[in-house]
Design a protein around this nucleic acid. Structure first.
Length: 594
RNA sequence: GGUUUCGUAGUUCAAUGGAUAGAAUAGGAGUUUCCUAAACUCUAGAUCCAGGUUCGAUCCCUGGCGAGACCA
């Protein structure tokens, strides 16, 4: 079954072509939802055809409206022309039919004509410290977009490129060697990533002290930062690592191992996963061959000092360094190599990078260079850029410079969930303590995810924990509660499938719920097209909200007839199913009781 | 300084170039305690500024102003 909007476009195009002997296609037709103050369900905008057909809008609307209602009487029951807008009313019969066809599977009819293979790289942490709050938007976005694409029939590889080498991890290693006394996560009773992070902080504290001491001795700031002994040690360590010194490598492996274990726990708690891990220690030397090839193709050039550059001035950018004069590579070089590696591994059509917007320039250049090198992976690259997440001032930021830890944030959300649930919902008393814990997690994590996903990715946003978990409001909690209430109704009333008869007219509320549900596959499609979970957040909220008004005004038990009662049960059953599926693409569970 | 993203109610977010710019919260006024909610109804409140493109601009273009990011 095709979506209503598509059917309207198709039939309208036929009508126009038939009436005016033109060559209008479906894509030329603009269809919107009709504004609530006007009669009708969907609106065809007539203005674009006024000029084309040399007709005034009123005549145009009447002609097309008459045609549609006569030739598609099972679809349209009435039309109304208001100032260049053709408002069409969809028949109850069609909606009833739709309901009957799809209440068991709201995704029925949703097919992907050209499924693609897509890699989505997200999270991509450094291993010198635990994940912090800022990473969460990235992680939820990446995971959710993956699920949305899968639901649309695409094949998805979730990838994580771990930055496991470099000066940052060496800093943690140095501090551990100096002050660690052989502690391990087990002996210290601390999660591995946090332990390593603690030593990273320790390093920085010591480094700061040493720099200040040197400045006290008369060094200028820049020189002091270079000469501080602990920094020199870290750089030595990095050199040793690069030379493959066994002792260094062992320690590096050990500490990274701790971090990975810690990350695993966090990822699991967040409900996300990966299909493929990449490690920078494996990839950081890649890309040099690519540079060589580029030189031969004359896409790159070598300067007198031996360094290699690419000239992007023709594209409005500047010259970009790819190899230093000593032959060592830069970040860009290894990213080029990694892009090629990924493509060789999976041959994907699209490669999505979920990376913060501070890397916009870097990603733009990366794609451009690969295009100039004529690498097949180039055109599929898409930077899913997102803005920073800020916290409301105060409260969560204990002191300046302190970052809020991801694990702590999740714990705080679960605590808030408990506080609120105990206070506001009644069913909770029937729960076992295990069920309670599960519910608090569901609510806390859901609130966090929804709030971070409901904003268009590229915009920066403010995260307010208290607001995010509000039972009323544009929140996951509100939707979860709506779902729980539907389940409660369904426990009290039996839905006798198959007894449904179209007999009666639909009330406006029933109709708007069905119309909304009918849009679900289209919404999923749009979300996939734009890589935007926000679209689904908006949709799910609207559906829950519409159910709410429906529920208040027309209780099931007061239905005038058994048929009506069955119809309503059917509608809300499907509402619950769709809510659940929509939320699943966001990684948010919905409870049956709360 | 160069490049780039963003500027919408008090606040947090919406609006493929379409109708009277939507929600949610926080206000103001009223009704109520009815199968899971301090609930329901009503009310008030916004497109940074100046040009341009056209039937029509929050959206597209140009120039400012303001915020962030990157590059140097």
């Amino acid at each position: 079954m095709q979506s209503l909007i598509k059917q309207i476009k198709a039939t309208a195009a036929i009508a126009i072509n038939h009436l005016y002997t033109t060559q209008v296609t479906e894509d030329d037709i603009q269809v919107n939802e009709t504004k609530p103050d006007f009669s009708g369900d969907y609106t065809v905008v007539l203005f674009p055809f006024v000029k084309l057909l040399c007709q005034n809008p009123a005549v145009l609307g009447k002609d097309i409206g008459d045609y549609l209602v006569h030739h598609n009487s099972d679809l349209f029951s009435a039309y109304d022309v208001v100032a260049g807008f053709l408002n069409l009313t969809v028949t109850d019969k069609y909606l009833a039919l739709f309901l009957g066809h799809t209440y068991k599977d709201p995704l029925l009819g949703m097919q992907q004509n050209s499924p693609k293979k897509v890699m989505i790289e997200y999270s991509s942490p450094n291993t010198n410290k635990p994940l912090h709050f800022g990473h969460l938007r990235n992680i939820f976005l990446g995971w959710s977009v993956s699920e949305i694409l899968k639901t649309n029939g695409h094949e998805v590889v979730k990838a994580n490129l771990v930055n496991d080498r470099g000066i940052h991890i060496c800093k943690s290693m140095i501090a551990w060697m100096r002050y660690g006394n052989n502690t391990s996560p087990e002996s210290a009773g601390i999660k591995g990533d946090h332990l390593v992070g603690d030593y990273y902080v320790r390093f920085n504290d010591q480094y700061k002290q040493e720099v200040e001491a040197l400045i006290g001795e008369g060094y200028d700031k820049e020189r002091a930062e270079k000469e501080a002994s602990i920094m020199k040690e870290a750089q030595d360590l990095l050199r040793k690592w690069e030379q493959g010194d066994p002792e260094t490598i062992n320690l590096w492996k050990k500490m990274n191992g701790w971090v990975y274990k810690g990350f695993e726990v966090t990822y699991k708690n967040l409900g996300v996963d990966f299909d493929k891990m990449y490690y920078e220690s494996d990839t950081y030397l890649l890309g040099k061959e690519l540079v060589e090839e580029g030189l031969q193709k004359a896409a790159l050039f070598r300067k007198e000092d031996g360094s290699v550059w690419i000239d992007l001035t023709a594209d409005g950018l500047d010259e970009k360094l790819l190899l230093r004069s000593d032959g060592t590579s830069v970040y860009m070089t290894q990213d080029l190599g990694t892009a090629k590696l990924k493509f060789n591994d999976f041959q994907m059509d699209q490669s999505v990078y979920v990376i913060a917007d501070e890397q916009n320039y870097h990603m733009q250049v990366l794609k451009l260079i690969l295009q100039k090198l004529q690498e097949p992976c180039a055109d599929g690259i898409y930077h899913l850029s997102y803005g920073m997440v800020e916290l409301p001032t105060g409260r969560m930021k204990s002191r300046e410079g302190t970052v809020v830890d991801a694990d702590d944030m999740l714990a705080e959300m679960i605590r808030l969930a408990q506080e609120q649930t105990e206070e506001k919902t009644t069913k909770i008393q029937e729960f076992s303590s295990e069920e309670k814990e599960q519910l608090y997690r569901m609510i806390g994590l859901g609130a966090l995810k929804f709030y971070l996903l409901r904003v268009e990715p590229k915009k920066k946003m403010v995260f307010d924990p208290k607001e995010s978990i509000d039972l009323h409001g544009f929140t996951a909690t509100f939707i979860q509660y709506a779902h729980a209430r539907i389940c409660s109704i369904l426990r009290n009333h039996e839905l006798a499938y198959g007894q449904f008869v179209v007999g009666e007219r639909l009330t406006p509320m029933e109709k708007s719920l069905i119309l909304l549900m009918e849009q679900f596959p289209g919404v999923l499609e749009n979300a996939a097209k734009d890589y935007s979970p926000a679209v689904i957040c908006n949709y799910a909220f609207r559906l829950a909200q519409t159910f709410n008004s429906f529920y208040d005004k027309h209780s099931i038990s007061k239905a005038e007839s058994e048929e009506k009662k069955q119809l309503r049960l059917m509608i809300i059953t499907m509402t619950a199913t769709i809510l659940k599926r929509a939320m699943a693409t966001l990684g948010i569970e919905v409870p049956e009781k709360m």
